[in-house]
Each structure stands twice: as structure tokens, then as C-alpha cells.
């Protein structure tokens, strides 16, 4: 999600819970904001949310794992999301992916040992007009080539 990886130093879990407790159906909002605190949803965080909302932990876990943008394991400071949809595919996304893998030494689903970058696939980013495309946190990049993607990564 949008602000998933920019830590919000001022907010903490109980504030988030207080804000949403009264409005029904806000589990997704709570999970999103909770994830923003340190980039992922730990077991303890999920437990606490379940307790506070008075719903089974299995349900909270079920929701958190249904959506691909919720993380239950730690992620890097920057999440590179490379689009794997057809329009990007037919304009050479595989080559871009290969360059990223080579540059960072990680495969999709992995994080660099220094914790700086995670690499992930995403569905269409709506940037098909400038395919192949990717996002790094909230920033969008298009018309990618091997050279350009190397330059971009080095600029972080």
C-alpha cells in the first residue's frame, strides 16, 4: 500500500485501534496503518488487533494473508514492485527483471541482506502506456531498459 514502508514515528498501534474501533469493517484500514509502523505485520501485532477488536486471531490472519500487499514477514526499506502483467510482458519485462535480479542478487520474494531492497511482482500498475513499468515504494518508473533500471536502483 501507499505508505506501507515509510515508518510513521508518531503513530502506534493503540492509537490506530482507538481511531477505528468504532467503525465497522475497518480491519483493512487497521492492518494497513499497522503495517506502516514497521513495514510488516508481526504475529504479535495480529494477535493484539484480534484481541482489541474481539475477533478470532485466525480471522485477522486470514484477511492479512488474502491480500498480497499485506506482509507477515519483514521487508526491505524500499520495495521494488515489478509489473508482471501481459502488456509489460510483451514489451520485455523479463529482461528488466533479469537485470534487477543480477544487480541486487535477489529473486522476487526476497530482500537484500542489508535490508535495503525487497523485490516483488505486482499486477498491472496502470502504467501500461510506458511498459515495462515498476514502482519503488510510491514512485513510478516506466519505459524501463536494463540500463535505466540499473541507474534507478543506484540512485536509491
Amino acid at each position: 500500500m501507499a505508505k506501507a514502508n515509510c515508518p510513521l514515528p508518531t503513530s502506534n498501534l493503540s492509537e490506530i485501534l482507538d481511531k477505528y474501533k468504532q467503525s465497522p469493517g475497518s480491519l483493512l484500514e487497521i492492518l494497513r496503518e499497522a503495517q506502516a509502523i514497521n513495514g510488516y505485520l508481526s504475529r504479535e501485532v495480529l494477535q493484539l488487533i484480534a484481541e482489541e477488536l474481539g475477533i478470532p486471531e485466525s480471522k485477522v490472519y486470514g484477511v492479512a494473508t488474502f491480500y498480497s500487499l499485506f506482509k507477515t514477514t519483514p521487508t526491505g526499506q524500499y520495495i521494488i514492485r515489478i509489473c508482471e502483467s501481459a502488456p509489460c510482458h510483451i514489451r520485455g519485462a523479463q529482461d528488466v527483471l533479469a537485470t534487477i535480479e543480477k544487480t541486487l542478487g535477489i529473486k522476487p520474494g526476497e530482500t537484500t541482506p542489508d535490508g535495503k531492497f525487497s523485490l516483488e511482482f505486482t499486477s498491472c500498475l496502470g502504467l501500461c502506456g510506458v511498459a515495462p513499468a515498476m514502482m519503488i515504494n510510491d514512485q513510478v518508473f516506466g519505459n524501463l531498459t536494463g540500463d535505466r533500471v540499473r541507474e534507478i536502483i543506484n540512485s536509491f
Binding site: M1, A2, L28, V63, Y67, S123
Partner: peptide, 25 residues
């Protein structure tokens, strides 16, 4: 309401479930 990365949530009944804070089935 902001989604969380699930294509099926574009289907209207799944979307409703998602707004209600459930798995988007």
C-alpha cells in the same frame, strides 16, 4: 477505501466483502 492487492476484489460481491473488512471472496 483502499484495496490491498487482490484482483478478484474488482468483482462486485468480492469488493463488498473487502469493504466490510473481510477476505475479498
Amino acid at each position: 477505501r483502499v484495496g490491498a492487492g487482490a484482483f478478484v476484489c474488482g468483482e462486485e460481491t468480492a469488493l463488498l466483502a473487502s469493504i466490510e473488512g473481510k477476505r475479498g471472496e
